[in-house]
Every structure is written in structure tokens, then in C-alpha cells.
């Protein structure tokens, strides 16, 4: 690579990184607001107008807090775990296509890359739980690892049934192939399963057994404070946004507009710029926000399930179902001569 392309990549990464941090910050505010409104109270409303400065105040507070290092921890692993966690959370964004060609790296194996990165994030949690050398993080990390690896199998099989319909691992190809019909319509059960599995994969309520404050205090991050805790926190919320974006890409046609250009209000605004190709990043973020709201809504609505129910749900329900769905999708595609054209 030339020096110019290094500069380009640096700028692109910052363009992803800074809005990501901001959106994670405001997602925490949105979560508290939405939970508050759902419980008939106001949520944060003191710091700034409607509490809008709250996330910045929280961030500054976390940064200036004392970094407590447990005396019995394995120091190196203890430090490296949050860094790994957050690095992986950023890196997964390299393949998220927000509009035609708006992404960091147009990998031909984008889906595999996403899958690999989300598998690796288990290591950060296991490392943190082990290195803390404390009882609650240890139990939380083991639970979280078992939960995440289990649900990865289901997510993998669901993604395979998507790829069977698309015929490519490239994210842009996946979105563009949904021009005629969004994949949520032919693959509706898979979409629902992906939504629930992504709740479990990010360890959000009602699957937040890794945190389970009534039994594990806070799970794998009990011993972390200050920025090392903030990194885990940022990684968790960035993963929520990432899973919502992947849901949009796989099933809701990414940046594609649900309306024709003459009916599309966003297209009217974009028409003078000529940036119009049947959709825009505005649609992408609108659709993703709906799924982010789903994450918050399910936290307000459902009680935490038991660990045996969690495991039963995956191994006895989702795994056979998603396996069957792969077989069924391939069978229908072959039987009705609907295989995607060779890429």
C-alpha cells in the first residue's frame, strides 16, 4: 500500500470509530430513557436538556475514576482482556456496508469475517474471568462462554440459509440480491431466530445470565473499574449495534429503500445531490434503529430465563430448527430451480 492509502484507511477508520463511540454513548442514554418511559418514569433528565449531556458526563466520570487492580489478578491477562474485547468490537465494523461502497474493507468473505470476529470475542470474556481470579467473574465467564458458543452454532446455520439464497459471502452482494424481495419474507423463521440468537449472543436481557446481578453481582467484569470497565461496556453496546446492522443486512435489505424512488421521502431530499440508487444510508440506520429498539424493548418486557432453559432453547429447539431450515432452503432452491446465479 502506498502512503496515500494508509492515510485513506486511517481517515475511514476514524469516520467509523468516532460516530460509533458517540452512538454507543447515546445508546446508553436511549436505553435508560426507553426503560424509564416503559416503566412510567422519566429516565435521566437533569444533565443538560432532556438529559442529553448525560452520556458525556458518564464518560468523563468513568475516565477519571481510580483504576483498581485486584492484588491476586494475573496482571497481563487482566489488562489485555478489555483491550481485546473492544478491539474486536471495532474491527467487526470493517465489513458493515452502510451504503453502496460505504465501508472500510469490501471483503469477498465478509460474512465469514463477521462470524470469525464474533467467535473471537469469547476469548476476551474468558480471559477476563480467569485473570480476575475472583469467584463471580469466573462463574460469569464460564457461563458467558458456554452461552455464546452455543448460540454461534445457531447463528452460523441461519447465516448459511441466507447465503444459500444469495450465493455470495460479500456483504454488498447480499444486500443487492434483496432488490426484488427482502430475505425476511422467504426466510421469516430464520429472521426471528436470528433476532433471538443475537440477544443471546450479546448476552442481553432476557439472556443476561452472565451478568445476573441477583446471583453473580455483575458477571465477568466485577473486578474491573474505570476505563477497563468502560471498554467492556463500550464493546457490549457496540456489539448490540453491530448485531442490529447485521440483521438489517441479512434480512431487511440493508440500505435499500422499501418504497420506490417517487414515493421515498428520503429520495426527495437526496435528489439534488444525485446520490440516489434505490436506497441510502438513512434507510440503513432507520432499519437498524428498529432492531436496537427491539433490544431495549425486550429488556423491559421479559424476565431473565434460567440457564437450563437457555441451553434447552438452543440445543433442543434452535439447533434442530436451523439445521432443518438449511436442508429445506437448499431443497426448495434445487427443487424449484431457484438457485442463485454463479457469482
Amino acid at each position: 500500500m502506498t502512503i496515500n492509502s494508509y492515510i485513506t484507511v486511517t481517515i475511514k477508520l476514524l469516520i467509523i470509530f468516532v460516530p460509533l463511540l458517540l452512538s454507543v454513548a447515546y445508546l446508553t442514554l436511549a436505553e435508560r430513557k426507553v426503560l424509564g418511559l416503559m416503566q412510567n418514569r422519566k429516565g435521566p433528565a437533569i444533565v443538560g436538556p432532556w438529559g442529553l449531556v448525560q452520556p458525556i458526563a458518564d464518560g468523563v466520570k468513568l475516565l477519571t475514576k481510580e483504576l483498581i487492580i485486584p492484588s491476586q489478578a494475573n496482571k497481563f491477562m487482566y489488562y489485555i482482556a478489555p483491550i481485546i474485547s473492544f478491539t474486536l468490537a471495532i474491527l467487526a465494523w470493517a465489513i458493515v456496508t452502510m451504503d453502496q461502497g460505504v465501508l472500510l474493507s469490501d471483503l469477498d468473505i465478509g460474512v465469514l469475517y463477521f462470524f470469525a470476529i464474533s467467535s473471537l470475542s469469547v476469548y476476551a470474556i474468558l480471559l477476563s474471568g480467569w485473570a480476575s481470579n475472583s469467584r463471580y467473574p469466573f462463574l460469569g465467564a464460564i457461563r458467558c462462554a458456554a452461552q455464546m458458543i452455543s448460540y454461534e452454532v445457531a447463528i452460523g446455520l441461519i447465516i448459511i440459509s441466507v447465503i444459500l439464497c444469495v450465493g455470495s459471502l460479500n456483504i454488498s452482494e447480499i444486500v443487492l440480491s434483496q432488490k426484488s424481495v427482502w430475505l425476511i419474507i422467504p426466510l421469516f423463521p430464520a429472521a426471528i431466530m436470528f433476532m433471538v440468537a443475537s440477544l443471546a449472543e450479546t448476552a442481553r436481557a432476557p439472556f443476561d445470565l452472565t451478568e445476573g446481578e441477583s446471583e453473580l453481582v455483575s458477571g465477568f467484569n466485577v473486578e474491573y473499574s474505570s476505563l477497563s470497565f468502560a471498554l467492556f461496556f463500550l464493546a457490549e453496546y457496540s456489539n448490540i449495534i453491530l448485531m442490529s446492522c447485521m440483521m438489517t443486512i441479512f434480512f431487511l435489505g440493508g440500505w435499500l429503500s422499501p418504497l420506490g424512488d417517487p414515493l421515498d421521502p428520503i429520495a426527495w431530499f437526496l435528489a439534488p445531490t444525485g446520490a440516489l440508487s434505490g436506497g441510502s444510508a438513512v434507510w440503513f440506520f432507520t432499519k437498524s434503529s428498529i432492531f436496537i429498539l427491539f433490544f431495549l424493548w425486550s429488556r423491559a418486557s421479559f424476565p431473565r430465563i434460567r440457564y437450563d432453559q437457555l441451553m434447552k432453547l438452543l440445543w433442543k429447539t434452535y439447533l434442530p430448527l436451523s439445521l432443518g431450515l438449511v436442508v429445506l432452503t437448499a431443497g426448495i432452491l434445487i427443487g424449484f430451480n431457484g438457485v442463485p446465479p454463479p457469482y
Binding site: Y6, I83, T87, A94, S105
Partner: peptide, 10 residues
């Protein structure tokens, strides 16, 4: 690009 952005992210 991915490799470089890994280093940059870290």
C-alpha cells in the same frame, strides 16, 4: 486494510 486497521484500533 483489515490488518492496518487492527493495528490502528489497538
Amino acid at each position: 486494510t483489515i490488518f492496518y486497521s487492527t493495528l490502528l484500533g489497538v
